[in-house]
Computed example of a mutant assay.
Amino acid sequence: MTKYIKYLGGLLLAVIINTTAAQNKIIVFQTDFGLKDGAVSAMKGVAIGVDSSLKLFDLTHEIPAYNIWEAAYRLQQTVSYWPAGTVFVSVVDPGVGTNRKSVVLKTKAGHFIVTPDNGTLTLIAASEGIEAIREIDEAVNRRKGSEQSYTFHGRDVYAYTAAKFAAGKITYEAIGKELPNEVVSIPYQKAILENKKIKGTIAILDVQYGNIWTNIDADIFNQLNVKIGDKLHVVIYQDKIKKYEGFMPYTETFGAVAKGKPLLYLNSLSQVSFALNMDSFSAKHKVYSGSEWRVEITRPE
């Protein structure tokens, strides 16, 4: 009997922990709307209208228009720093009103992403894993009076559903039907070491300074057995077109090279990056970011 009571107690505790993790009342918004008009404010207003005790934060609203890849990257860059149970609303949705699915992804780390399934989930699904996916039932989870609106799902469906869920007014199961654990993915070069050559993608730009950030992490890079000061051969492609080729030293600081000279370093996420000291690598060499931008790194013998 004692063991049975302990078993029931354990089940109850697990339910409480799971419910708490799914309903911490935090929502983080990401869009390509900018802040020039009232779109972001409208989304937050809808959320607060559901529950005024919700805590609302911004990831960014400066994703370039329609840039699904950058939306995917910013989620991967940011989500893991938030507590389990946080709900993210990501709206970069060039297909709004079409037959793309509106979903809520639960990651294996316990985060929730409310978004169109249009490639936005590519990187977070890979980094945190997929625990479950549910399609939003818009017949139930939609702001009242918005049935004739087809172009602002961020306000009428995503913010509203996220708020109801984050506030604990609906369960995860009540969001809609469960889908297979797979998402629409953008093809890209994963970071690999192959025949003494590292391959990867230019994931994003450090836009303020024009530095180039790749998806190659320190663990893979260190397999080249490179020491500070060693020169590396770097080739950058846009699809199959070579856009840059050159040699640069591996350094810990920008000031280790002369002004305007190239260097390779590990950025704040411990990923391989390229820069020009006190200049823009991107602007000078017309190198940008996205799934079509690839990089190859070798250590000269």
Rank of each mutant, 00 (worst) to 15 (best):
K3D: 14
K3V: 10
I5H: 12
L8N: 04
G10N: 15
G10K: 14
L11Y: 09
L11R: 13
L13R: 14
A21S: 13
K25Q: 13
V28A: 15
F29T: 07
Q30W: 08
T31A: 01
F33D: 05
F33E: 05
F33S: 04
L35G: 01
K36H: 07
G38M: 05
S41F: 04
G45C: 01
I68D: 05
I68C: 02
E70A: 08
E70G: 01
Y73W: 08
R74N: 12
R74Y: 13
Q77P: 00
T78N: 15
T86N: 13
V89G: 05
V89R: 03
S90I: 05
S90A: 15
V91I: 13
V91S: 06
V92K: 05
P94S: 10
G97Q: 11
G97F: 12
R100I: 02
V103F: 10
G110I: 01
H111M: 05
H111C: 04
I113H: 04
P116C: 01
G119Q: 11
I124R: 06
I124V: 14
I124F: 09
E131T: 06
A132T: 02
A132M: 01
I133E: 06
E135M: 09
I136G: 10
I136Q: 07
D137C: 03
V140T: 13
R142D: 12
K144H: 11
S146E: 10
S146C: 08
E147R: 03
Q148W: 07
T151C: 00
H153I: 05
H153K: 05
H153G: 04
V157I: 15
A159I: 01
A162N: 06
A166L: 11
A166S: 14
A166K: 12
A167M: 08
K169W: 13
T171P: 01
Y172L: 09
E173M: 09
A174N: 14
A174W: 12
K177V: 14
P180R: 02
N181C: 00
S185F: 08
I186C: 00
Y188W: 08
K190Q: 13
K190G: 14
A191G: 14
I192E: 15
I192W: 08
L193E: 15
K196Q: 15
K197P: 00
K199S: 15
G200W: 03
G200M: 04
T201R: 04
T201M: 03
Q208E: 14
Q208T: 11
G210H: 13
G210L: 15
G210F: 15
I212E: 03
T214G: 06
T214W: 02
D219M: 00
I220N: 13
I220M: 09
L224K: 05
L224G: 09
N225C: 03
I228M: 07
G229T: 11
D230V: 08
L232F: 13
V235E: 14
K240R: 15
K243V: 15
K243P: 09
Y244R: 10
F254A: 06
G260A: 10
P262H: 12
P262Q: 11
N267I: 02
S268E: 07
S270K: 11
Q271A: 01
V272R: 02
A275L: 09
S280A: 09
F281G: 01
F281P: 00
S282I: 04
A283D: 08
V295K: 08
I297A: 06
T298P: 05
P300V: 06
E301R: 00
